[in-house]
Design a protein around this nucleic acid. Structure first.
Lengths: 316, 316
DNA sequence: TTGAAAGCGCTAACAT
DNA sequence: ATGTTAGCGCTTTCAA
């Protein structure tokens, strides 16, 4: 106990005793065992983050924001990727709960009912990030992907005259962000009296190479295509490169727009018109919410809308 | 104990007892406490990864490879970023050791001596990834960044006639990969009888925007510049975009080459000539080495060279 | 100001 | 085939 006091409340130990203890500590190279502490306190000091894919630059930034805040409070991050599968996510949640994590961060709002059940009954802070929902498991921080899609679609439609516009999106299964972006696009086009035919809505993997392949395919089949909306800048960058290789002027013949505003969006020529998402803030905000809860405080805003912003560049 | 047996060696329990136990387990929603198990077994089932920056696409892929292998063995990953600071890395190592991680993965071979001391005396498997060194803390998987630099420099130099070549590298402090790439460049140029003046070697942050700024600066000051070698594709992409905005033909007037072969390298026009690095394999290999050690096996190759490959595209 | 005792949920070793 | 005991390293509570 005296050793513990030296480490946690040194002022409660006589200076002479403290010195003796400290010298032994240094000499033996003592390191406190946080596992044992966790067991005794019923608190692991670890938070779990489950993301679709680590190599997504958007996700990486969110996670970076999250760790930054948590680390400042001495909390570490257990991380895993679900590969865009709600099933795999469920398994990871179960495993992490077994590790007695103090909180959980999830990307998106699409989860199995078993995932929701486990998380609720665990009674720990849970933050879903990247989208908004009326019915969060616990807390949620993000923005309305559907509204953002309406904004950018309206802008793109204006730039394309009456010509056809296609949507190239990441696989929508278990991915609410991609799904909401697509449905916002479809709804807006319908309202504009320009409903989109199924062959103009395609699904790809979320990377540049897939975006390029999708663009090649689309323009080959539809020479009169006037615009392409992508569900992510990574896809849009691929689309842009593919169009350029074919000598198709952007935005002259085909306009391109997308979502996220990752670094590359502002660097390519033409610059990508896109929806800017405050992803670092999503991570930081999620971290803060979890920390507040762990500190026993009530979290005022259980549903935080970080908003978005249309960034108009040359591509549309 | 009977409960434990039902979970770990069900065949050693009578069917009738097992059924009874299982029904109670299901009904109470029992979840084993891995913290307690870790304490009892002196094994946490957690491995730590400390990387310079999560938002680096190279790092993200290495980590992805690492988790994939570890997860298959029921081991989870505790992650943190050091921000390219060996000091911060030391603090993280200390914290993770306190959590009784079963193994540690580090990017790079530059660490404080205290970091090395702690890691060695912890007696757990440690893998350093991304570079090679004669004196690993324990194990190392990577390739010779210096040799790779010589390869790409020789290629670039041939493409540039006798014109001056600049090097744009990530900050070299606490970053052995960037440092080795730079020194390989310098050494090769010297051997070619074309020693590089200090103003042709610049340091920037590791991102596209910084690369673009560095290129702007270089070509303004040195209109006769003929080539730029970058220490990473992210930087090179920024360089390329900056040159294109200025209407400088690549490789016609300035040739560009770099390292990593991330996705974008093959998609921009002109495609980037670069050094391909098997980063997923680095992560997987590191995971395998840690797992082998944890399984009590001797690791045959304590120093794994995964090699590299010069990918010649249009930029040089 | 210091120390002793009990217990967190598990595992390993040893009964029965 | 099943149960008992001790102990992992810490924290909490109570005692001196």
């Amino acid at each position: 106990m005296t050793v513990v006091r030296v480490m946690r409340t040194p002022e409660k130990v006589a200076a002479i005793t403290r010195a003796r203890v400290e010298s032994v500590l240094a000499e033996t190279g003592y390191t406190p065992d946080l596992l044992a502490r966790g067991l005794a306190m019923n608190r692991s000091g670890v938070v779990a983050a489950i993301v679709p894919l680590l190599t997504n630059s958007l996700v990486a930034e969110v996670v970076q924001g999250l760790t930054t805040r948590l680390e400042a409070a001495g909390i570490h991050l257990l991380i895993a990727s679900s590969g865009f599968s709600a099933e795999r996510e469920e398994g990871l949640v179960r495993a992490f709960l077994s590790r007695r994590v103090d909180g959980v961060f999830l990307i998106g709002t699409t989860h199995t009912s078993e995932t929701r059940r486990m998380l609720v009954s665990a009674g720990i802070p849970v933050v879903e990030g990247g989208n908004l929902t009326r019915a969060p498991i616990d807390m949620v921080v993000g923005f309305s992907n559907r509204e953002a899609a309406r904004t950018v679609t309206a802008h793109l439609a204006k730039r394309c005259g009456r010509g056809p516009i296609a949507f190239v999106g990441a696989h929508a299964r278990d991915n609410d962000r991609a799904r909401d972006r697509r449905s916002g696009f479809r709804a807006t086009m319908r309202e504009l009296g320009r409903p989109v035919a199924p062959e103009f809505v395609v699904e790809t993997d979320l990377d540049m190479v897939s975006g390029a392949a999708a663009a090649d395919d689309l323009v080959t089949r539809n020479p009169d295509l006037r615009g392409i909306l992508c569900s992510a800048d990574a896809i849009a960058a691929g689309v842009l490169f593919a169009l350029q290789r074919r000598g198709i002027p952007v935005p002259g013949r085909v306009a391109v727009a997308s979502f996220d505003d990752i670094e590359i969006a502002g660097l390519v020529s033409p610059g990508l018109t896109t929806i800017r998402v405050p992803r670092l803030r999503i991570g930081e905000c999620a971290g803060d919410m979890i920390l507040q809860r762990l500190a026993g405080a009530e979290v005022a805003e259980v549903r935080v809308d970080v908003g978005y912003e249309l960034v108009v560049r040359e591509s549309a």
